Amino acid sequence: MPRSWFCREILRALSMSAMLLSACTGGRAQSGPSPLDGPLTIQAQGSFFVGGHDVHSDTLSTLPAYAPSGTVSVDQMYVRYQVPADVAGRPALVLIHGCCLTGKSWETTPDGRSGWDDYLLRKGYPVYVIDQAWRGRSAGNIAAIDAVKTGKAPLDQLPTVFAAGHEPAWAIFRFGPEYPKVFPGMQYPLEAQAEFWKQMVPDWAADLPTPNPTVPALSTLAKRIGPAVLVSHSQAGIYPFQVAAAGRDGVAGIVALEPGACPAPTDDMAPYKGLPILVLFGDYVDQSPRWAPRLALCRQFVAAANAAGGKAELVLLPDVGIHGNSHMMMQDRNSHEVADWMAGWIEHHVPRHM
């Protein structure tokens, strides 16, 4: 049998094996361990604060061991970052959590899987995770509380602080239409939900000015680390748009995950001209009286922005073949699939820099 025929048959068999392997792995080459597994190599990590200012108060304490008068720093924003060894011109991603939560939203999922902060880092993006001003490690100012407690201010000047109970939060986060019903095929790992409830903290946002102090802090951060894509969630969804409206220095794009609000279609659209913008929603939105109207308003914004020369896009995950996502898509069982899709969008729409 001719040697050339034998060689062709071997090559044909190898080619067929490669095609079958590609079909089984979604087209990804499987030559050795995936860069998304195993040891992680980074060039830098750390934390810092941006923004903030000092205020003097005479109502800092009601405890005898601590003086009531003094100066405190307020409105600062905590930032934790990691930079991969090979950035290759990719923009930094700033992950901005939503209502009643902290930067923990993006860290290890309640059921122990890699969170977006680590997963996107492994995909080659510098990742910056923040705690909103007056939330988590970004401390607030308790002077107004002590002023009322000591009789130096009237009762109606107590700050408006709220916490989301498990039962009403169930529908807000779209685990189901109401507690304890579950949407069919919903992807949130309810077996680990107790760990999610532990992530929730008191929320001061209703008592803070507009824009929230987080917004100018994000602007400062973008100028410092940019180009950056501001990736916001829920309550924080409007913040990147407010940053861009004040100035786009350092802002390479916006990804708003189920924003609590989009800019009104009657607002000035000039700040968004030519800026890559993705508004992303999960599943069951049309079944939620809270989120369906917000989706409709965001559609109006995207249409208005594009009519003014924008590069905005609104996507529902079911429309791209990703199903069952709750409001907490970064923690759902298919969170890596969502992150992959989002990273693909960023790669396609946000130019790399040199």
Score class of each variant (00 low, 15 high):
residue 46 G to E: 08
residue 288 S to D: 12
residue 249 D to I: 02
residue 193 Q to P: 02
residue 243 V to G: 03
residue 94 V to T: 02
residue 53 H to P: 09
residue 345 W to Q: 04
residue 190 L to G: 06
residue 328 M to F: 12
residue 354 M to V: 08
residue 173 F to I: 10
residue 259 P to R: 00
residue 351 P to N: 07
residue 275 L to D: 01
residue 159 P to F: 01
residue 115 G to W: 01
residue 94 V to W: 00
residue 18 A to D: 03
residue 103 G to R: 01
residue 153 A to L: 08
residue 174 R to D: 07
residue 222 A to S: 15
residue 255 V to G: 00
residue 235 Q to K: 11
residue 21 L to T: 09
residue 115 G to N: 06
residue 214 T to L: 09
residue 160 T to R: 13
residue 304 A to F: 10
residue 55 V to A: 10
residue 129 V to P: 03
residue 119 Y to M: 07
residue 86 D to S: 10
residue 204 W to E: 00
residue 236 A to H: 04
residue 279 V to G: 06
residue 239 Y to K: 00
residue 100 C to W: 01
residue 273 K to P: 08
residue 5 W to L: 15
residue 293 P to W: 08
residue 67 A to K: 08
residue 335 S to N: 15
residue 232 S to A: 15
residue 117 D to W: 03
residue 190 L to N: 05
residue 107 E to H: 14
residue 182 V to C: 08
residue 198 K to M: 13
residue 98 G to Q: 00
residue 83 V to F: 07
residue 286 D to W: 09
residue 60 L to M: 10
residue 98 G to N: 01
residue 137 R to Q: 14
residue 104 K to N: 14
residue 223 K to M: 13
residue 23 A to I: 10
residue 36 L to T: 10
residue 222 A to H: 01
residue 47 S to Y: 05
residue 174 R to F: 10
residue 207 D to K: 04
residue 7 C to R: 14
residue 57 S to H: 11
residue 85 A to Y: 07
residue 136 G to H: 01
residue 86 D to H: 13
residue 180 P to D: 10
residue 339 A to G: 11
residue 231 V to A: 01
residue 88 A to H: 07
residue 39 P to R: 14
residue 272 Y to M: 13
residue 78 Y to T: 05
residue 250 G to F: 10
residue 292 A to T: 04
residue 165 G to Q: 12
